[in-house]
Design a protein around this nucleic acid. Structure first.
Lengths: 252, 252
DNA sequence: CGCGCTTTTGACTCTATTCAACTAGAGTGG
DNA sequence: CCACTCTAGTTGAATAGAGTCAAAAGCGCG
């Protein structure tokens, strides 16, 4: 079991590494933004940067539980999570809601509106978050002017596509236990990519959200997490998760 | 039950409507191609057309069971199904294979390679098919020159993205019966969009393929199709399917 | 500090899987 | 042309895994 002290320890370490630069205000440009690699692609004349930053990025704060955009709303902007995390959801005609994705700091958001100019998903903050706004029209223009930008944009979309495909694989052919393990490993990897610990993280989703994302019930999620803990694979304390045996999880 | 005569009747009617223009040879340009709306977007100067068609489209035939491309292969081209149909598959590390999609005539293929320059899926023909080849580099160049083309391209990718999202919904929150119904309705819609009957079609996938796509076993698919037939919702004769009660299916 | 929501755990149910046997149909060769 | 084989599809019976319902415990929020 994780002691309360161990948990605070994780909190402290996380706070010490928060990606939001302290000096960045809500109206700041994108220079401190986690999506810099998207907003300001390499290979561009440095003269253009200030102009581009001005066109592309402004910021917005979204409080826990609030939505950045809602399914059915008009699509105008793409977004990049600067800090915090969000879930994307879709609602079935019969009212059932399903979580289609989790977006962590540094990840892109909003592609679900490109096809029809209307958002297919809703995006809801799992914690107070800060979001870069990227006006889609401006981005399109930029893509036409700058070839590397277009390529980056295409790859970004392609990447989302592949990510969804692998989630289809998870939903279509894994057992409940395998799904939970795959999810934990995915979040762990994405944390590592952003420079955080691979082994410990604060997963803001509820058990219900996880279940919805994984196509299982919240009770099953809870049971499986307990089971993993009993086997020494992980330790959980509410929304904190520590992975003790990465290989063990992968072996599922 | 469908009588053998009824079945032949369906075949005849289908053949009479095949989208492949009789005069189009294997090396023909895209003018007769079902993807014309992609290859030659509206709003373009007609002078450019011959040039564009020359750059963008050549054709290739793929026999039933053969692959158009394989997972892991280098990505160079996008494709459009001119006639026939294909399945896209992905292989898990443990060897399990899953069907990620079905592509009918007129639909696009190959987006799975954009993110990494390597195909994530394999594409296998379900019947002898003819495929338009669209060199990706040429398409990118064209997109930069022609704004409407870029937009079209983005929408195409966005559409694939949304399609996958709705499949995630199917896999994540529907019962086996609902999945089969949703699949039949999806194929029916897509047939209708291409000008075919939405009540009768020849579904080339095996029960195993359908099961894999829907995240259920082939036995379950078979049982559910039989059940639907007993309830008077559909009639099946091997790979031929006739939908008798569209509303009944939707009501699931 | 306490109320309400999330999480955990248990017992029972039920859906879909597994294993198996049988049937139908497509393709092959005498 | 028909018999033979091989694969695909159907159906049944038994089983397992996840869902449902319910109750208790824990936490976080106001």
């Amino acid at each position: 079991m994780l002691s309360p002290a161990a948990v605070s320890d994780i909190v402290v370490r996380r706070i010490g590494r928060t990606p939001t630069a302290p000096a960045v205000s809500a109206s700041a440009r994108c220079s401190g933004c986690a999506m810099r690699h998207l907003c300001v692609p390499q290979g561009m004349a440095s003269d253009d940067m200030p102009k581009l930053e001005a066109v592309i990025c402004s910021a917005r704060r979204v409080r826990r539980g609030e939505s950045l955009y809602r399914s059915g709303e008009r699509f105008d902007n793409l977004y990049a999570v600067r800090s915090g995390s969000l879930k994307t959801t879709i609602v079935h005609r019969d009212g059932r809601e399903q979580i289609t994705g989790l977006r962590l700091a540094g990840e892109a958001l909003g592609l679900d509106g490109i096809a029809t100019d209307v958002h297919a998903f809703s995006a809801v903050a799992l914690e107070d978050s800060s979001i870069c706004i990227i006006p889609y029209d401006a981005l399109k223009t930029l893509c036409r002017e700058v070839g590397t930008m277009q390529d980056r944009m295409n790859r970004l979309m392609g990447d989302q596509f592949n990510r969804e495909a692998s989630q289809m694989m998870v939903l279509g052919s894994l057992s409940a236990e395998e799904r939970v393990a795959a999810f934990l490993l995915d979040v762990s990897d994405r944390n590592a990519q952003r420079g955080y610990s691979h082994a410990e993280f604060h997963l803001r989703m509820s058990r219900e959200d996880m279940g919805s994302y994984l196509g299982i019930t919240l009770e099953t999620v809870s049971r499986i997490l307990s089971r993993f803990q009993k086997r020494g694979l992980i330790e959980t304390q509410g929304k904190f998760i520590r992975i003790d045996d990465l290989e063990g999880l992968r072996a599922l």
